[in-house]
Amino acid sequence: MNIFRLSGDMTHLMSVIVLLLKIHTIKSCAGISLKTQELYALVFATRYLDIFTDFVSVYNTIMKLIFLATSFSIVWYMRHHKIVRRSYDKEQDTFRHLFLILPCLILALVVNEKFTFKEVMWTFSLYVEAVAILPQLVLLQRTKNIDNLTGQYVFLLGAYRALYILNWIYRYLTEKHFVHWITWISGLVQTLLYADFFYYYINSWKNNVRLQLPA
């Protein structure tokens, strides 16, 4: 464990907590894409298949349980909670995420480290996570006023993978531990997708103006 990876995990955890706080306290999911939340639930479900078979550490298991529990409960809240679901802008959140899932599945079957069920599912989860934010970014561009919590959520979610890239560099340099090039490229694509959001978010924060993404 190194500082980049720990801060990456904590940033990821913070993003989930910010989102849960928004949904649970103000009972609103305005501006949040259910499609992105469903994709993240899929990411964790396919990445943590080995949660009970391969024990890595207590920390690892606890964090996996937290990510699984929170991602599925957010999807449940947005779909079934009688108050929260009313604030879900269904008409705007129209990204057909099946068009993301299928190509990721095909790619995972073709480009993977080892052709085993677990490894293909793990690779699939990497590809899905790389593009999972797209429905949310599309929704942000459609909904004019982005509230602070939603902006913070997306920022933290993007920052965590950027910290993971630093972690991979650090581990390669110090532990001679390499992560597969699939992980590198997926992580890079994922972080680059946030590039313009980061630009507008940091600018709005510096100029202390409301976050507005160009249409």
């Binding site: 990821h12 793990w122 001679k176 531990h177 390499f178």
Partner: peptide, 10 residues
């Protein structure tokens, strides 16, 4: 000898 990635990360 570089160690294989055993997916010990989240």
């Amino acid at each position: 000898e570089e160690e294989e990635d055993h997916h010990d990360e989240l």
